[in-house]
């Protein structure tokens, strides 16, 4: 997890709690329980959360506080979940969202 802050000059060593496993598009990944799903994905280097329905453009984290809805994904089969404010839990299934579906566009 190269993208995590190991030690911060003001905040010290981040207290992150329990490491849990989840899947992203079928791949097993790790993150800390309770942190936003988006934080775990970002730490693992995942940038694209979804592709827009009409123009198939990639979207990722933008506001990180649940306002903009750019970071929505399919979580445990439910589409449009704001991953920046949804806590990570052991065993959840996270999928890239294409339009509002987990099925990649055909073209």
């Amino acid at each position: 997890m190269a993208e995590r802050i190991k030690e911060h000059p003001i905040l010290g060593i981040p207290e992150k709690g329990t490491l849990v496993k989840f899947t992203f598009d079928g791949k097993e990944m790790e993150g800390f329980e309770g942190e936003p799903i988006a934080a775990a994905l970002k730490a693992a280097g995942v940038m694209v959360h979804r592709y827009t329905k009409k123009e198939h453009k990639p979207r990722g984290i933008f506001c990180a506080i649940g306002r903009c809805t750019d970071c929505v994904m399919i979580v445990n089969g439910v589409p449009n979940v704001r991953t920046c404010i949804t806590p990570l839990k052991e065993g959840i299934v996270v999928q890239t969202q294409y339009g509002v579906s987990a099925e990649p566009f055909k073209q």
């Binding site: 802050i5 905040l11 981040p14 942190e35 936003p36 940038m47 990722g60 506001c63 506080i65």
Partner: peptide, 19 residues
């Protein structure tokens, strides 16, 4: 992806410990 608000940067680095 990669264009973010300054607040998003603060949220990621200062709350969640992610670069």
């Amino acid at each position: 992806p990669g264009v973010i608000g300054a607040g998003a940067a603060q949220t990621m680095m200062n709350l969640h410990g992610v670069l």
